[in-house]
């Protein structure tokens, strides 16, 4: 090894002795404060069956809307919801949430989500909804009979109505799949059988208000 090279190597090893960011476990005592802290003011433990609450980042304006989560981010859709539907809080991966009140405290929930591409296709998505309420999966040849087709402006909307097992059935799902601008939008009304059946006309009327965001 020649001298300049060995000199250089010794110098490098000296340089590497400088400290880096400390990675140490620490223990300290703090006065009890409400959890979470100021960085995450949206405080509530997710109730059973609910999605995780929307994270709030330390920087204002930074939230799930600009994380790398693969929700559709292209041109959006707008709609007009029936007056008796109550808009819910923002949630991760959701474009919107509505609660539909029923009798004796019953409540159905409409979730609006959008993801890039076809998200597995209609069969996979209908079977996912079926699985959620305890129904067996359909074959590809049975899919046609399970979907109702609607034309809303330039949109082609596939609507599925799924009634849960049991007599009387406990749950019913009305789902609509709307391809738009390279993404697929899902509108899913999920709740007690009678309430969702009663809301079907309102749901279909709601779908007819869909239009591209200008």
């Amino acid at each position: 090894m020649n001298r300049p090279l060995s000199t250089l190597l010794i110098a490098c090893s000296l340089l590497t002795l400088t400290a880096c960011r400390r990675d140490e476990v620490r223990t300290y005592t703090v006065a009890k404060s409400p959890e979470p802290a100021t960085a995450t003011p949206a405080s509530s433990l997710p109730a059973p069956g609910s999605p995780p609450p929307a994270p709030v980042s330390p920087a204002a304006g930074a939230s799930m809307a600009n994380t790398a989560v693969t929700t559709a981010s292209g041109p959006g859709l707008v709609w007009t919801a029936p007056a008796h539907w109550q808009a819910g809080p923002e949630r991760p991966m959701r474009k919107a949430t509505f609660f539909v009140p029923g009798e004796a405290g019953a409540k159905a929930e409409l979730s609006v989500t959008a993801f890039p591409g076809d998200v597995g296709g209609n069969l996979a998505n209908v079977n996912r909804w079926r699985q959620q309420i305890g129904l067996p999966a359909l074959g590809a040849d049975q899919l046609g009979g399970a979907l109702q087709h609607l034309h809303v402006g330039d949109f082609h909307v596939d609507v599925a109505e799924l009634v849960g097992p049991g007599a009387p059935p406990a749950k019913r799902v009305l789902g609509a799949i709307v391809p738009h601008a390279g993404a697929t939008w899902f509108f899913k009304l999920d709740g007690p059988d009678t309430l969702v059946a009663q809301e079907k006309p309102a749901f279909l009327a709601f779908l007819k208000t869909l239009r591209p965001q200008s």
Binding site: P52, A68, N127
Partner: peptide
């Protein structure tokens, strides 16, 4: 280092 969480029943097919 970076991961999205979703409730299992709300997971889009194919994800």
């Amino acid at each position: 280092p970076n991961a999205a969480l979703a409730q299992k029943e709300q997971l889009p097919a194919g994800q």
